[in-house]
Write a protein that binds this DNA or RNA. Structure first.
Lengths: 111, 111
DNA sequence: TAATATTTGTCCGTATGTATG
DNA sequence: CCATACATACGGACAAATATT
C-alpha cells in the first residue's frame, strides 16, 4: 500500500477529533489533498494517527458536514471538487452531519 | 439475549437513530416536550427505548444540529426556546437526492 | 452469474474526563 | 466531597455498497 501519510499532532486542539479535522483541512487547503482525490481509508488514518476509528469517523463527518469531502460506502472519502462554497455560516460547532437532518426531514414528509 | 428491540413510535425509520430523532421531534412539536423543558437524560432514554447510548447521543446531536435542542454538559438537554432559523446549506454529499432536498426546502418554507 | 475483498455505515459496550449542583 | 449527566474516546462486531475476479 502507499506509505502512510503523516498526521502532525496539532496539540492545541481541545480534542482528538478537532485536531484531526484541522490536520485534514490544512492538507486540503494546501493542496496536499487535491479536489477529487481520495483520502486515506479510515483504517489507514487510524494506523497513521493512532486514534480510534470513532475519532476518525467523527472527523470525517465534520468535514462532510462542511462540504469539504464526500463519502461513498464501499468506495471511500473524496475531497470535494468545489470546496469552500463559503455559504456555510454559523453552523453549530458540534454539527455532526447535515445529511442526518435531511434524512429526518425526508422521512417526516412520508415519502 | 435481549429481544430484538422495536421502535414503536416510528417503525418506518431506516435505523435506530433516525427513529429516535423522529420520535423526539414529534414530542417537541406536539408540545409534549415544551420549549425550555429538559429532556429525559441519556440514560433514561436508553432505558426507555432499549437502544445504546451511542444511538441516543447521535440522535441528540442531530436535534442539536437542527437547533431544536441545546445541551449543556452536566445539566442535560433542553428544548430550544426559539427554533433556530438555521442556515441550511445543501451540500454536495446530499445532491444525489435533489428531490428530497427540494421537498425539504418546501417543507421548511411552507411551515 | 457468483464469490470475494475492500471500505464505509451502523450499532454496541465500556471507560474516563469535565461541569454542575 | 459526592452524585448526576453530558463529552470524549476506545474497541469490537456485523451490515451494506462497490469493484474485481
Amino acid at each position: 500500500m502507499a506509505e502512510p501519510m503523516t498526521f502532525d499532532a496539532i496539540p492545541q486542539a481541545p480534542n482528538l477529533r478537532t485536531g484531526l479535522v484541522n490536520t485534514l483541512i490544512a492538507q486540503i487547503e494546501s493542496g496536499d489533498l487535491a479536489p477529487g482525490q481520495r483520502l486515506p481509508t479510515e483504517q489507514e488514518i487510524v494506523a497513521a494517527t493512532g486514534v480510534s476509528r470513532t475519532v476518525v469517523r467523527e472527523a470525517l463527518a465534520a468535514l462532510r458536514a462542511r462540504g469539504l469531502i464526500t463519502t461513498r460506502q464501499g468506495l471511500g472519502a473524496f475531497v470535494a471538487k468545489d470546496p469552500m462554497p463559503k455559504t456555510f455560516s454559523v453552523l453549530p460547532d458540534d454539527l455532526e452531519s447535515i445529511d442526518e437532518v435531511l434524512r429526518v426531514l425526508e422521512l417526516r414528509m412520508g415519502r
